[in-house]
Design a protein around this nucleic acid. Structure first.
Lengths: 246, 246
DNA sequence: CGAGTGTTTGACTGTTCTCAAATGTCGTGG
DNA sequence: CCACGACATTTGAGAACAGTCAAACACTCG
């Protein structure tokens, strides 16, 4: 039920394999990857725009986010990453970071040297394909978020985000009981994710509550009416490219 | 000056090589790829959401766009592709199309079978890396667009888009004289690209003209004040990951 | 218990949307 | 070459959604 129970390799293997069956040899190779485990406080930066990292990050516990700032200091979160995700896999082939990554909640992450990843990819081309695919799914999520932010109102955007988080967290076994998300995101962070303000997040969540779609208690959000939440968010999980169509 | 002059291979090789030096052997292999040339009318679909394509598309002439529709039929264009771009390279590893692709202007495109691409990648791992990198740059542009749409007003968004188009078109030698873009995009399409309405595009372009940043004549846009346009759009080309920092 | 942070509420403002009509542009066929 | 229709752009006025600012309230953690 909790990611803590898994070793870094297990988490990564499960993620990769969910869409891309791996041989025992390939799995062994992944298990052999040196991973440097690090604990991060909330809001701590992992990499910054302009950096030239020599390792990739694997989220083991907690949430991280990928973001940019506009000149007036307004933040846009471009991606949320949960255990099993590799937020900066793109740095393997893009020299400079074009965005920053930070921990949202206290996190445990594992760092894997680019060199080690390149070696393993060279030896096992199917792993290259599996990692490549991960970055393609990330891109697919960016596309869906563009639609979400560009063409839906605040109510739909929020509904959509909640749907996505539920499905993604479920996929890695991080959803408690029935449809309850443990949400470490503040309204400020939710606002920066869907391109509105924190004040408007407050009002929008209230509307979702009034409509009986969700219920919030402290930092957890329970989805009361999955069908209507999906409808409100125009949510179709195709873009997540999960093997098992839920 | 015009893409018509180039063979499909030349265009693709130049694009890949601009960031990723290739050996003669690798270039020969690319030249040997079977490419099926097709001419498309404006607005013709290339692939649709839900399709399972068995080939990738290479734009040779004209513009194409990648888009999704919301339930109410509002369109969001997630990417614009110009000669040299491969709009659906992601289909190599993602089974289902999560977006549609259509020609914006009359286009010439080349189709390359997935099988042929997979073979060439298997034989030349550096080409795998080069293609992978292309998809990572696409993703980087999605991220910048998320910031653009999520956190900038219409005026900045439009300025940013014009900056990006100028740089990208320049990179493939498609900019006439000094800073003049041949823009096949209608206001409707510009609107769908930056998440506003066509009416507001009209007003926004007018504001850019009034400020002396651009000049429009028929379907061409001339950038009169590059420095101020960049400033207005908060444009920093880092995210395009071009080798030669312009 | 108190400080700091996060959330809610209210009143007001502003950007962008919507709808509708007028004007402009382009390609086609007479 | 002109007339026509189709489509694209511009303009105006009013409405709607979301932003801003400010204050009150709630929660959490030393």
């Amino acid at each position: 039920m909790n990611a803590e129970a898994h070793s870094p390799d297990t988490l990564m293997i499960r993620k990769l394999e969910s869409n891309f069956p791996l041989s025992d040899e390939e799995k062994q190779a992944l298990k052999g990857l040196p991973v440097q485990i690090t604990h991060l406080k909330a809001d701590q930066h992992i990499v910054r725009t302009g950096d030239r990292p020599h390792h990739c990050c694997l989220v083991l516990e907690g949430f991280t986010c990928l973001f940019k700032l506009s000149y007036e200091g307004r933040r846009q979160i471009m991606a949320l990453h949960i255990p099993g995700d590799m937020p900066d896999l793109q740095s393997l082939h893009l020299e400079y970071m074009d965005s920053s990554i930070a921990a949202i909640s206290p996190c445990t992450v594992g760092f894997i040297q680019h060199e080690d990843l390149r070696n393993i990819c060279e030896r096992y081309p199917r792993l290259t394909a599996a990692f490549w695919r991960e970055t393609l799914v990330d891109a697919s999520i960016f596309r869906e978020w563009l639609l979400n932010i560009g063409r839906r109102d605040a109510y739909s955007r929020m509904a959509h985000l909640l749907c996505e988080l539920l499905i993604r967290l479920e996929a890695v076994g991080l959803v408690k009981d029935s449809n309850t998300l443990l949400m470490p995101l503040t309204h400020e962070e939710l606002a920066d994710t869907i391109g509105i303000t924190a004040v408007h997040v407050s009002r929008t969540m209230q509307a979702l509550r009034t409509q009986g779609l969700v219920e919030t208690k402290k930092s957890q959000i329970t989805i009361l009416d999955w069908a209507r939440l999906q409808e409100a968010g125009e949510f179709d999980p195709l873009y997540l490219h999960l093997r098992d169509d839920s």
